[in-house]
Design a protein around this nucleic acid. Structure first.
Length: 424
RNA sequence: GGAGCGGUGGCCGAGAGGCUGAAGGCACCGGUUUGCUAAACCGGCAUACGGUGGUAACGCUGUAUCGCGGGUUCGAAUCCCGCCCGCUCCGCCA
């Protein structure tokens, strides 16, 4: 959500910013319409406010007359007439603001200057870590996992459909171990507060972080309840402080949470569907930060390092990719993806997306802070990133640490959680 | 699911048709006093959206806001209806 003042005073800047996302002027009609509605909105406010002021004056007259026990019928009639005009203007205003709100909620965030313009072909690898194991397409993770009995794809599909998986035995324990390992790392070494949150969220929360209204088709809805299965912990965790005014002394705040994530992936049928690459339900530990505008950029680097540390401890080669404007998510102003190397599929797999939302989400959530006593509230800057998503991490782990004897070496960091140094 | 009670500013808490953007307190800010701190005293202290003046910080001004949405009324924090949330009790339940 953008500041209406920006729409009014710098519509060109808004349009230019949207254009950097590389999809031509797709937002130009909405911007033009929003600007027109905004002008009309002000006209209606002025008209309505004038009449309200008049009514308030008339009402005071009535009170004075009544107190003096005099006839007040004339001002009462005037007030009634004003009331009807006000009601008509307000009805018009409400309809207009609803339309304007819909338009504004559908406009993406502006990216910051250091984000390259263009589509995903302009994405830039800014960092690499580790030595990727040569491609070994004979041993993709789904083969390794089924051979070792970690994963039961057919039975997952049996109970919920394709895109839902069952882990078994040591595989299930691996999931639990990853959850504990990641939460321990972020809480003990990176200073995050662990939270455990609802896995379903209401519509307002989904609007707050930007999933709605635009991406409703990708979400699982709970019929009749007005609820959605959380597509990422970003939604329940970031919305925890919705509609709050935070003391500056309480910033920054760093929260981390494990949650399952549910995504319909409505437009993705047939793409990367083997094994653990793309699921309707998966697990993730998420990092969320509330920052001031001054600290937010540095916090994005810090949060991304926290996610990278997970990969380093798991001894998995990865690279950091700065997303170009056109590939940057709807609500994000800047995103670094972390991609882990998957020798079994000969691909880099996205396992984390670390984003800085500037004040875009905070406006939608009405999440503010007071910089100093006596100063006016400002919107908080929000950030989040996976630290990490489990399935692709597991895929890379199995493929990368597979030994010639077919067993999988467990990295040191994970051994105490699994109680074993090998799988299989 | 049923019954009762409640939701007021950053926080606590009065108010029960007009004099209430809202008493009082806490917190916070400025000042007086003070060896320092504390205390005491004086003053200040909501937000949003408009209009207007200023490069701006901000000033002046209007409107709205007492959980949300409707209604009654010349006028609603206050009365009525619906909804949401919280607490207590009952029922059901892992």
């Amino acid at each position: 959500m953008h500041d209406l003042k920006l729409l009014r005073e710098r519509p060109d800047a808004l349009a230019a910013g949207m254009a950097r996302r590389g999809k031509g002027d797709v937002h130009a009609p909405a911007l033009a319409r929003a600007a027109a509605l905004e002008a009309e909105r002000r006209r209606l406010i002025v008209a309505a406010d004038e009449r309200k002021a008049a009514r308030n004056a008339v009402t005071a007259e009535v009170a004075a007359l009544k107190k003096a026990r005099q006839d007040a019928e004339a001002p009462m009639a005037r007030s009634r007439a004003l009331g009807e005009e006000i009601a008509a203007l307000e009805a018009e205003l409400a309809a207009l603001e609803a339309a304007l709100g819909d338009l504004l909620l559908g406009l993406p965030n502006l990216v910051v200057d250091e984000v390259p313009a263009g589509d995903e072909t302009a994405n830039a690898v800014v960092k690499s870590w580790g030595t990727p194991r040569p491609a070994d397409e004979a041993h993709p993770h789904w083969v390794i996992a089924e051979t070792l009995g970690l994963l039961d794809l057919p039975r997952g599909a049996k109970v919920a459909g394709s895109g839902f998986v069952a882990f078994r035995g040591v595989g299930a324990r691996l999931v639990r171990g990853l959850m504990q390992f990641m939460l321990d790392l972020h809480t003990r070494e990176h200073g995050y507060e662990e939270v455990w949150v609802p896995f379903v969220v209401n519509r307002q929360a989904m609007i707050g972080t930007g999933q709605l209204p635009k991406f409703e088709d990708d979400m699982y809805a709970v019929p009749g309840e007005g609820l959605f299965l959380a597509p990422t912990a970003e939604v329940p965790v970031t919305n925890l402080h919705r509609d709050e005014l935070i003391d500056a002394g309480d910033l920054p705040r760093a929260l981390c949470a494990y949650t399952p994530c549910f995504r319909r992936e409505a437009g993705a049928a047939g793409k990367d569907t083997r094994g653990l690459l793309r699921l309707h339900q998966f697990d993730k530990v998420e990092l969320v930060r509330y920052e001031t505008p001054e600290t937010a950029r540095a916090a994005l680097e810090a949060l991304t390092r926290h996610a990278e540390t997970v990969l380093e401890r798991l001894e998995l080669p990865y690279r950091r990719v700065l997303l170009a404007a056109g590939d940057t998510g709807f609500a994000s102003a800047m995103t670094w993806d972390l991609e882990v190397w998957s020798p079994g599929t000969n691909k880099w797999l996205e396992v984390s997306s670390c984003s800085w939302y500037t004040d875009f989400q905070a406006r939608r959530m009405n999440l503010r802070y007071r910089p100093a006593p006596g100063e006016k509230p400002r919107f908080v800057h929000t950030l989040n990133g996976s630290g990490l998503a489990f399935p692709r991490t597991i895929a890379a782990l199995l493929e990368h640490h597979r030994q010639p004897d077919g067993r999988v070496r467990v990295p040191d960091a994970l051994r105490s959680y699994l109680g074993a140094d090998h799988l299989g």
